[in-house]
């Protein structure tokens, strides 16, 4: 069975391809950057297309059956498993969906979709953790820079500067890092926040 992977996140697509290639009954094809979904389906004639849900050319694949311009005689349909609503909801929430080309049985598609869901979830979690770590670093850096600037402007020591930011944060029900960023935006003309 031929599977086309259409994901602009090449790292994730590569990881999914490695996962699927472990099954030697599958022939996995990756979508080249800049190629449209329709063109890829026309060229590779896959049985299944696994798509990153945020791809905007999904609209075109949705309409492929009815449009003469598609040049595809084989039917392409959004994969729907009506008996397993949670699988479909999980797929949507994870950010992956699947199209059937021809009449691939539902039972053959489900394991592929499940693998994709698990991998997309893992990527999403890793990406969220990375973003949180970056934010923490950026917050810490902004707070340190703001404290230094405050110490220079007010001729005070570090603990006094810290107390001032903490007091502002408490009074305004905001985070110290946000107060620090506001302070830098108002007083630091050298570098952008």
């Amino acid at each position: 069975m031929k599977v086309l992977l259409a994901d602009e996140n090449s790292h994730r697509a590569g990881a999914l391809a490695s996962l699927l290639e472990a099954d030697n009954t599958l022939d996995v094809v990756m979508l080249h950057p800049g190629t449209s979904l329709i063109d890829a389906v026309r060229i590779h004639i896959p049985d299944i297309v696994l798509v990153d849900i945020s791809r905007s050319d999904r609209d075109a694949l949705d309409s492929v059956r009815a449009l003469s311009a598609s040049g595809l005689e084989r039917p392409v349909a959004l994969f729907i498993d009506e008996d397993d609503e949670s699988l479909m909801e999980d797929a949507f929430a994870a950010g992956v969906c699947s199209y059937n080309v021809l009449n691939t049985p539902v039972k053959d598609v489900k394991p592929l979709l499940r693998s994709a869901i698990a991998l997309y979830r893992r990527f999403r979690q890793t990406s969220a953790e990375l973003q949180a770590a970056r934010k923490t670093l950026s917050d810490r850096e902004a707070t340190d820079r703001a404290k230094l600037l405050f110490m220079k402007n007010e001729c005070c020591k570090e603990d006094e500067a810290y107390r001032w930011f903490r007091k502002q944060a408490m009074e305004k029900s905001r985070k110290i890092a946000d107060i620090a960023k506001d302070y830098l935006a108002r007083h630091d003309r050298s570098t952008p926040v």
Partner: peptide, 15 residues
């Protein structure tokens, strides 16, 4: 949403 397909899927699959 990035496309109308996503809008329709969002309504159907609780997004």
């Amino acid at each position: 949403m990035p496309s109308w397909a996503n809008v329709a899927d969002g309504l159907v699959w609780n997004g």
